[in-house]
Design a protein around this nucleic acid. Sequence first.
DNA 1: CTAGTTGCAAAAGCTTTGCATGCAT
DNA 2: ATGCATGCAAAGCTTTTGCAACTAG
Lengths: 141, 141
Amino acid sequence: MSKKNITDPHEILRGYNIKITPQRLLVYSILVNSNHHLSVDEVYAKVLETLPSVSRATVYATLECFRKHNLVKSLRIDPERSYFETRTDWHHHFLCRKCGKVFDVEVKPCIPMKKCMVEEHLIEDFQGYFYGICKKCLDKK
Amino acid sequence: MSKKNITDPHEILRGYNIKITPQRLLVYSILVNSNHHLSVDEVYAKVLETLPSVSRATVYATLECFRKHNLVKSLRIDPERSYFETRTDWHHHFLCRKCGKVFDVEVKPCIPMKKCMVEEHLIEDFQGYFYGICKKCLDKK
DNA sequence: CTAGTTGCAAAAGCTTTGCATGCAT
DNA sequence: ATGCATGCAAAGCTTTTGCAACTAG
């Protein structure tokens, strides 16, 4: 069976015209296999488990490369650091001020999920951030 | 006439239980009188025009104090730096990727403009960020 | 072969902190 | 009088950069 699976990281990167390296395959797999939004440090830590010689600069370069090619999206819901995710459709996020966790929120965005004009500006991307106390932290109190 | 104007910075700060100092009055006036979203450095530069001995640390502390008391809101639409504004109702912002300017966007937010529950999380604050090319930069090309 | 990627170390830029002094109430 | 705010300098973090060596296509 030589039919390639469309979820094969090689195929994905090739489809986005991203040159394939072991580091990039690894970073992409880590992001795809995590259902969380990962910070650069979290990605870096996971990378080291498999390829201990990779440098932080490579992780930054790789994530920036993915972002430029629209393979991943970066979040800045937390002012302290960036998070990355492979889900690229427009959706909202929620940051819990107690535990610091980031959640997806399935609220319908206020404008269409595609490029459009708003007040004569060309909109290319969107981020909707909510801040508050998450379900779990509410229960604890 | 001794009736105090409600836009008097003294009264505003007092109303928010913020201890009054010359530095704080100045920072607040700068924010209120600017119709822009100001970065810390922009606030700091304007502060120095009036009180040249104020330190950057005081500006940071003051803005954080105002933010904690809900007198101002901070934006992180630009990953590089924070912006501050006195408009505290929920509204969207737009960052132009060409010129770097931040604009208000009067799109109706996707959830009510007050504390509410979304997917069992308590929502206390909201930021909606759009990214793209602004009207002016579109015209130039 | 050749452009693009990597790893390292250092630098950059924003923000926070520790501490002594000074001020608001 | 006293707790909080200020100013200064230094430190902390995330992120970027310069450069030489390497590697994918």
